[in-house]
Design a protein around this nucleic acid. Structure first.
Lengths: 242, 242
DNA sequence: CCTACCGATCGGTAGG
DNA sequence: CCTACCGATCGGTAGG
């Protein structure tokens, strides 16, 4: 018989995917839609088409399963949205492409995006700490990258002199605000993605020129037509906390 | 003995608060910190100092308990942050005061703020729908108020002409981005509240003057260079998804 | 990958 | 507000 196959695990019961692949898919979907506490191992087993006990051949516990899924989702998001930031074009173009890629990830791979959001906001206790640790690392890494990005943009004269860390904070507020709304909006009706043009124009005004922390009043007349265009489909990621 | 007291419910076991008040306080705190699924009625009963069954004299189910807490928290948040918006001063001052009040609520009454966030992001199923309904109503009401606020600000010339709805969206992105970061930041270290000065300057640039989505360039403000490829018309890169 | 089973705990009810 | 109790389900294990 086929017991030459040492650790097959192949039982292409559905879709031709291996049990492990189906496990990833199903668990991702159920956690994303029902939450961690709202999804039981039995629910997952039913979706995969195996007995609950069999799941423990892949993960030693429900916690470990979630951690792996979160890790995969974060990596996918980063892998999708970071490249545009490192691509070519003006800094503004690259930053905007980065943002669009991140937002498209939310639209195209909602379950993975939801898992990351869930990880950042919904998990408590010891598991929560482990998850926060993982996300925190990624975020720090990303913030450092952005800080350098903004510092270079200043050297090139594309944005006014300022503390790069202030720009990172400003960016995080804008990006997280967009993401959280896109994530929570009833699927499909992305009123934010569709209004990105005007939002970006306004955002970029604050990014490129501003009398920093000192000035408060002084809303100088407008000037500056920020690059404006529809959104081009791009890839995605972004590691803000959402 | 004292059975002359018809529906007393008074058992000032701790802090002099009634059992019902303690129930509100304890449940709010536990839900906020442990999540809905992560908090059992037994946990709450233990915190209140009564038997689990006694909780059902106040609420017919765990769901009803959460709904009431969410409702109270939303009302409190609104009651705390709306007055400044309707106060006196320039529109910018009033809007900023509104924002600061909202952020202070997060700092000063973290459990109530957390309950609202939890309600918006963590509850699924039928209960989730009921909760979303409640929040949605409140939000619509608030958006309408803001739309009027911005329309008036335009009439008064404090901000440039634009679609008020665009301004509401821009505001929502900024406000939500700030809130979510303030909510998730390790308590105390509010790096956002502390940087509100520079963030606000940048935000207000985009709010007050900007050639929105359809607009062309307008009177160039006084100083405001900013490198960025010398005044060439937008790249018009199309490719948008619609 | 399955059958069989574990102790613990869940939200909630009966009845006083 | 309590004692006593319910059926259902939880995450996980034994052993093959």
């Amino acid at each position: 018989m086929e017991d030459t196959i040492t650790e097959s695990k192949t039982t292409p019961a559905a879709g031709g995917a291996s049990t492990e692949e189906r496990l990833h898919q199903v668990a991702m979907e159920l956690f994303a839609e029902g939450g961690y506490g709202g999804t039981s191992m039995s629910d997952i087993a039913r979706g995969v088409g195996v007995q609950k006990a069999s799941l423990y051949n892949y993960y030693s516990s429900k916690d470990e399963l979630l951690l792996d899924l979160v890790h995969r989702a974060v990596e996918a998001w980063t892998g999708h949205s970071r490249p545009p930031l490192l691509g070519s074009g003006t800094r503004q173009e690259r930053l905007r492409a980065h943002l669009e890629a991140a937002m498209d990830f939310v639209t195209e791979r909602p379950h993975e995006a939801a898992i990351v959001r869930l990880a950042a906001t919904q998990i408590t206790g010891e598991l929560g700490q482990r998850v926060q640790e993982m996300l925190g690392e990624k975020e720090c890494e990303h913030c450092a990258l952005l800080e350098t990005f903004f510092a270079e943009a200043m050297e090139e004269g594309e944005i006014e002199e300022a503390d790069p860390r202030d720009l990172v904070v400003y960016w995080n507020v804008f990006a997280d605000g967009l993401m959280i709304n896109e994530l929570l909006c009833p699927a499909g009706s992305n009123r934010y993605r569709g209004r990105l043009g005007q939002l970006w124009s306004r955002f970029w005004l604050g990014m490129s020129g501003c009398e920093a922390s000192g000035g408060e009043e002084r809303n100088p007349g407008p000037g500056r037509r920020a690059g404006q265009r529809g959104g081009s489909p791009a890839k995605a990621q972004k590691g803000g906390k959402v």
